[in-house]
Design a binder for these strands. Sequence first.
DNA 1: GCCAGCTCTGTTGTATGCATCAAGGATATT
DNA 2: AATATCCTTGATGCATACAACAGAGCTGGC
Lengths: 250, 250
Amino acid sequence: MKKKKNQKTITDDIRSRIARGVYIPGSALSEAALAEEFEVSRTPIREALKQLQAEGLVVVRPRVGTFVFAPTRLEVNELFEVKEILEGAAARLFANRGNIPELELLKENVRKSEHAVANQDLDQYVELVHEYHDLIMRGAGNSKLMHLYHTLMNQLLHSQFVHLTVRSSGRAPQSDHEHHSILEVIEARDGNTAERLMRDHVRASHQALMEVLEFSGQGSLLNAASSPAPEALTDFDLNGPDNKQDEAVK
Amino acid sequence: MKKKKNQKTITDDIRSRIARGVYIPGSALSEAALAEEFEVSRTPIREALKQLQAEGLVVVRPRVGTFVFAPTRLEVNELFEVKEILEGAAARLFANRGNIPELELLKENVRKSEHAVANQDLDQYVELVHEYHDLIMRGAGNSKLMHLYHTLMNQLLHSQFVHLTVRSSGRAPQSDHEHHSILEVIEARDGNTAERLMRDHVRASHQALMEVLEFSGQGSLLNAASSPAPEALTDFDLNGPDNKQDEAVK
DNA sequence: GCCAGCTCTGTTGTATGCATCAAGGATATT
DNA sequence: AATATCCTTGATGCATACAACAGAGCTGGC
């Protein structure tokens, strides 16, 4: 008999609140405040924040404070580029694996999505979009790839972006159509095409998001282009050429 | 190319020691022992270990101890699959960016590598292999991608594997030839081919490693305990497969 | 009015003590 | 001898106290 491990850790709890937007990007996360909120001392809070820092969800400025990560526009572009890579690869792997349980679930998902779009049930569609991409990753059969993917989506505040895009752009039917096409080539076990189509799909959703952000002025989720602490994001020696042109969607 | 940072954090230090094999995979990392070794109290040690847990370099078994991550054979395969994906994508991005400073550095690297192989200077060749792959990632111009890559390589204990492969297999000339071919198609700005060749290259080096491990019986870097079935990942939590290894010993 | 320097406050960084629990050995029972 | 139970041991988990520092605001001199 297995022990119950439904015990939510503080780390999971804070992570969830960041993902759901309870803690606003850029805002400070005071250790003392969190300690009081969770009714523990600062020690476990600090450990949780350090974990989240390693995941890239918060930024620690030594001797100053911890802040919810707010990606710059450039970083959002980079994260979407990585998303394109990971999901494209997952689609290829899925297609190459042939008839696996996830395939049936994916078909079911697409059926429900068409229904939700037809009924203008946007809430359910948002949910189904998440499930679709989750199923693709699961179908790739690589737990490390899936772990990277989820870490990435958290950094991107992807849930909020999907919500925003679905609600503020008319792209739902087009997006649903793309999901359908990808499913078809996966069924046909055409890994090459699956990867290409998935990359196109992610790029299109990226572009749609950027347009929505442009028009709605929802820059609040983003960090101002000139970040005061650009080096605090990574432990590695990433200090390569700084001449990154702030290109828009490629 | 080593920059010695004056303010090296404990986290970086432990990470480096794991990467270099000072701390053996699977061995216990006692907080008290580390605290004494670094001449600090247990508190900063605990925070460092929690960060490394989030990076996947150590595994924490609650109330028991912290252990250096030792991937199973399945996990090594998964990690190499992800490596193939990331490096392939980086090669494509590099090729698409055209004439960037990294291109000249890459040419220089390949020149030196040929020389090292001709002179049987394996130590230098190992170093150049690392530089080559680093340059590819840098040339992709995506800091998030590079960060993921480095995290992955740490989990893989990649440095030690490269060392082992270069020394124990005769693949150096072949590997060097592949590096050369990839450079050529990058110069020709052929992103598609660059991605394909890089994936082939990573897969070949993976295979070479597995053969070396098979013959040399160097299983010490791997975890002998077989991981639970991949289906066990269905109950996904954001901490990933970290705590999936609770043995049901009754 | 303005700026340099200082103090003051709130924050994070660290040390330490105690509580809690896992794992293995000792012991009693059969 | 085998087994179940208790206990010892050593580790981690957490709370608390204090130290050290960043940044804002005040003060005083000019």
